[in-house]
């Protein structure tokens, strides 16, 4: 593996979900990202490269930011002469944990926390640039750090990356984000009152918002579709009534 092939593989990881599909999930994307490294590993052996690609387009799925762990480790294993069965077994073992850890840490906690802080910043400052910056900068500092750490950990540790993943304690990081998310929820609900002028908003509007927040916290996404349906139908009916009047 050369530095350039390693950098190319890392950059291709940003498109690992580009061919997400119901048959192989990110399998083809995994092979696409691994290709620069496979070309070096199987230099002068086109048949070996073709066989390796044939194996790696098979089913794989993990959180996109943590896929680098599996990709780096697989590249290390292929370099060290691991058998195809060992590599396949490793990919089967890591994909579940990498998906679960990443989904909770990034999608369920870090993304909503930073997005709500950005939203509150934009509304409170009446400046969308501040809002977008307050969201994108912290979000992507962590995003890029996680991607880089994952890829380097995989490349350095190979098959032994799982203990390293446990030591990194990503679940612990998730738990530490919970208070930040709670605070961000409060900031966002308070800042959203700007949609209901005058300031301070009418008491009835504040009570309705508090009630809606409580319903969301109690029933979670079970309410998502019914609530949107009621809101949408209500708006359409109001428009129709307005047209008749």
């Amino acid at each position: 593996m050369t530095p350039w092939s390693t950098i190319r593989a890392f950059l291709r990881l940003f498109a690992v979900q580009g061919s997400w599909n119901y048959r192989t999930n990110t399998g083809a994307g995994f092979a696409y990202a691994l290709l620069p490294l496979l070309r070096r590993i199987h230099a002068g052996d086109p048949a070996g490269l073709a066989r390796a690609l044939d194996r790696h387009v098979d089913h794989f799925n993990a959180h996109p930011y943590l896929t680098g762990i599996a990709l780096g480790a697989v590249a290390r294993m292929e370099t060290d002469g691991a058998t195809p069965e060992e590599v396949d077994r490793f990919k089967s073992v890591v994909r579940g944990p990498l998906g679960g850890l990443g989904d909770r840490l990034v999608w369920a906690l870090w993304l909503p926390a930073t997005a709500l802080v950005g939203l509150a910043t934009g509304f409170l400052s009446s400046n969308p640039v501040w809002g977008v910056a307050a969201f994108l900068i912290p979000y992507n500092v962590a995003h890029l750090t996680l991607r880089l750490w994952a890829f380097r950990a995989g490349l350095a540790s190979g098959q032994a990356v799982l203990p390293r993943l446990q030591r990194a304690d990503l679940s612990g990081w998730s738990n530490r984000l919970l208070p930040l998310l709670a605070l961000a929820c409060g900031l966002a609900v308070g800042a959203l009152s700007i949609v209901a002028p005058p300031s301070p908003p009418p008491l009835g509007a504040a009570i309705l918002a508090a009630l809606a927040f409580g319903l969301g916290a109690r029933w979670r996404t079970a309410l998502w579709r019914p609530a949107l349906l009621v809101f949408s139908l209500g708006v359409v009916m109001a428009c129709l009534l307005g047209m008749r009047a």
């Binding site: 909503p112 709500l116 998310l181 709670a182 929820c185 966002a188 609900v189 959203l192 009152s193 949609v195 209901a196 002028p197 908003p201 009418p202 009835g204 509007a205 309705l208 918002a209 508090a210 009630l211 809606a212 927040f213 409580g214 319903l215 969301g216 916290a217 109690r218 029933w219 979670r220 996404t221 309410l223 998502w224 609530a227 809101f231 209500g234 109001a238 428009c239 009534l241 307005g242 047209m243 009047a245």
Partner: peptide
């Protein structure tokens, strides 16, 4: 052709957004 007052409308919109944030709490 919107018939409702701005006060009622914005209250409903605020409630919709608060419902979504509540789901994340």
């Amino acid at each position: 052709h919107w018939p409702l007052t701005a006060e009622v409308t914005t209250s409903l919109i605020w409630a919709l957004a608060a419902l979504g944030v509540g789901m994340l709490f």
